[in-house]
Nucleic acid binder design. Structure first.
Lengths: 140, 140
DNA sequence: CAGTATCCCTCATGATACTG
DNA sequence: CAGTATCATGAGGGATACTG
């Protein structure tokens, strides 16, 4: 009887790998930018500071909760600044930090590839689906 | 009484925006690469073709279901090839298509930013959290 | 070896209502 | 105006068992 069973060794390997993934900077960055509204917020702020209400209007589909959370996360990560002007009613402006600005080229690289090649991806997807489920074609 | 209430107009705007998001190539690409295992699979395949079992061993934390699904999605999108050798037992090799290879520079851009700046992000995160929840510090 | 099939659970997102 | 609080949901991810 071995000290650890095969299942235990697998589990340990999995845990170790999960720990690695949790640390992995690349994975962390991907997680950050894959939040549904992050890309759009960054795009808006790339053009200059915006008020909360401006963002809310531009990103027509976002809920208050998600916009706030997205902005808070970005602020927490040092990517955007949050400036409160204690007028009545209060005014809050959001803008990119230098760190946030340094991220823009990465976003542009993503956008650029997407605009060049996503059509190809979609075409491949369509033909794959057509081959798999001919929807009415005779199978035999 | 207006033809549409404010709530209705908001809802329409949201639907329109959702439709836009669903189409947006950038969003689609981000969704693809943010799948938990996609980055790691691409990294493995970047070095050359790999067998299913090789990938399974390298990506120690992945379940069979997720590895298979990830590979299938990538194949469907024209990013990887799947080659079955009908020996006994069967052998399946995965490799990058030219389209898949064209994605590597984007992944490298992400990785590069992450390795340069994620430490800064984490530091910001830590100090933000420290300020918000001093965990034992006197609040008054 | 390379998968399928099934059940389960967490978490991101969202709808709604309320507030300083 | 710029949020917070609460509840609901559904899709992604995973554990486990089975198969050609």
């Amino acid at each position: 009887m071995p000290t650890r069973t095969a299942a235990q060794r697998r589990e340990e390997a999995r845990d170790a790998f999960d720990a690695f993934l949790a640390e992995c900077p690349t994975r962390r960055l991907i997680e950050r930018i894959s939040d549904k509204w992050v890309g759009l917020v960054l795009r808006e702020l790339a053009c200059g500071p915006r008020r909360y209400s401006d963002l809310s209007r531009q990103l027509a589909g976002v809920s208050q909760k998600m916009l706030t959370r997205t902005l808070r996360n970005l602020e927490r990560d040092g990517l955007v600044t949050r400036t409160v002007t204690p007028s009545v009613p209060v005014r809050v402006d959001y803008g990119l930090t230098p760190l946030g600005q340094s991220l823009l080229p990465v976003m542009r690289a993503i956008k650029s590839w997407a605009e060049q090649y996503m059509a190809e991806v979609l075409a491949s997807r369509a033909s794959y689906d057509a081959a798999a489920a001919p929807a009415g074609a005779a199978t035999g």
